[in-house]
Nucleic acid binder design. Structure first.
Length: 467
DNA sequence: CCGCTCTGCTTGCCTATCTC
DNA sequence: GAGATAGGCAAGCAGAGCGG
């Protein structure tokens, strides 16, 4: 049935997939450890096995982990490596899957010293599917890191992983953050469905963080939620533990208006003590399961009419909303539990409303406002007219550093009577305030020197803005 | 229908290193 | 020095299926 005669091995169609089998040097029949979606992939796999038998590099597929004599082969050495590493359960599980499913079946029996760049490239281009770029990247990255260890230990002369540009995987969709009006509709839902989503949308909590909240973490008097742990899971096991990054442990302010709803929800919870989970699972003791939260979220996004948003997009919404209030980057980092300003930037998105406001403000500014921006230099802050052609990348960093955000046309100027040196509180500037702050309009003594292409791009953008 | 578990796979976060 | 790229790890998404 769908089987074909071949000089080496056989390929058989099974439920829409292709199964490869062969007789090894041990005269025993062996199956490929996984099915192939394309016949050509199965043929390539058999070709690899055939070559390894011809070169007397083939060994029977290894089932038992960690046998000392396996350490010469890639599979044995890789298993040994992963066993030695300190990994979280989830990562260990994932690495094991990549190794056993994608790496070991094709390359596992090969001795480390016989692994060559050409063979790795063939494996990368034939076994790893380009349709799954993330999995492809991860499998390759794992193999490269294992072979780097082998190189460090002197087991191989040089790491044979030389494929270039493996790490480029980009976000494939734009996120339109939820608006305050949409988030407020969550209060119409049953509390167990609406409140977890509300904490994500207003406070920027991730799914695992929401599920890991305990009653003691919610201080409704202070209006603060304390993020101290998160829930993860592996096959058949739920893990409740500290945040992966130190910055993830944080206190986040709760907007005042949902607090009465939270208080009412907490008061109605069964008595399980302050260590009890805020959103318990069906047994009342363990944390709400990931799937239960997803179910609740499915209901919630239907009610607010935003079925395009994922749960994690709620974190982006919180960051974007906070950003639009003019919150400094340091506050946004603390709120979101990020360690870098770059991550804050990544979480900022323009909303429809903010885009409209930006366009309006630009329209008002045209003809009577010369745009300026401020930057830091070693001696403090200098002021650079946009027309000096400062690099776009510098502007983006400035925006993060100075609290100027996507979706707003606000510029920072000294507060009333204040200096522009960072020691004084600052307000978002109106066009009038900008005009009345002559210090901001002066040309910097040491203007940035951008590259030609970026300078031309900046100039073309500015030409449309300037009078 | 609801609430849940299991599982395979994808996406995101953060930091280090390289390149221009 | 800034931006780009790579590396390592963690978390999220969603289909299948089960039981009440």
């Amino acid at each position: 049935m769908g089987q074909e005669g071949r000089s080496f091995g056989s390929i058989e169609r099974r439920s829409g997939y292709f199964r490869a089998r062969y007789v090894g040097a041990d005269r025993q029949r062996h199956d490929a450890p996984h099915l192939f979606s394309e016949r050509i992939d199965a043929e390539h796999w058999l070709g690899e096995v055939h070559r390894s038998i011809s070169r007397e590099e083939w060994r029977p597929p290894v089932k038992v982990k960690g046998r000392p004599d396996d350490l010469d082969t890639l599979a044995g050495y890789a298993r040994h490596c992963l066993a030695e590493r300190e990994l979280t359960p989830r990562t260990r599980e994932e690495y094991g899957r990549l190794l056993e499913k994608l790496i070991a079946p094709t390359l596992g029996a090969i001795q480390l010293k016989h692994l060559e760049p050409d063979r790795i490239r063939r494996w990368y281009s034939t076994v790893l599917s380009a349709d799954r770029p993330v999995q492809r990247k991860h499998a390759y990255s794992l193999l490269r890191s294992i072979l780097r260890e082998a190189e460090d230990e002197g087991l191989i002369d040089r790491n044979p992983c030389r494929v270039r540009n493996v790490g480029k995987v980009r976000r494939t969709r734009d996120i339109e953050p939820a608006t305050p009006a949409e988030l407020n509709k969550l209060l119409d839902l049953p509390p167990k469905q609406g409140l977890p989503v509300l904490l994500a949308g207003w406070c920027g909590l991730r799914s695992g963080e929401v599920r890991g909240l305990r009653r003691r973490d919610l201080d409704l008097t202070e209006g603060v939620v304390r993020v101290r742990q998160a829930v993860t899971r592996t096959k058949g096991q739920v893990h409740v533990g500290a945040q992966k990054a130190a910055a993830g442990t944080r206190d986040v302010g709760i907007p005042p208006h949902p607090i009465p709803y939270l208080a009412k929800y907490v008061a109605a919870l069964p008595m399980t003590g302050r260590d009890g989970f805020l959103f318990p699972g069906g047994d009342g003791v363990s944390p709400m399961s990931e799937k239960a939260l997803r179910y609740a979220y499915g209901k919630a996004r239907k009610v607010i009419g935003r079925e395009d948003l994922t749960f994690h997009d709620m974190c982006h919404s919180a960051a974007s909303l906070a950003g639009m209030t003019g919150a400094p980057t340091a506050e946004l980092k603390a709120m979101m539990g990020h360690a870098t300003a770059g991550m804050v930037e990544r979480y900022q998105h323009a909303t429809r409303a903010s885009r409209s406001r930006l366009a309006e403000n630009m329209s008002k500014a045209r003809g009577d406002l010369r745009p300026v921006c401020a930057t830091r230099s070693s001696g403090g802050r200098s002021h650079i007219p946009w027309s000096s052609g400062v690099r776009i990348g510098s502007l983006l960093r400035l925006k993060a550093a100075e609290g100027v955000h996507h979706g707003t046309a606000a510029l920072r100027v000294p507060g009333p009577g204040g200096r522009a040196d960072g020691d004084q509180p600052e307000d978002p500037a109106s066009p009038d305030r900008v005009r009345s702050a002559p210090g901001l309009l002066q040309r910097t003594a040491h203007p940035a020197r951008p590259s030609g292409g970026r300078r031309r791009h900046a100039a073309s953008v500015l030409a449309q803005l300037s009078p």
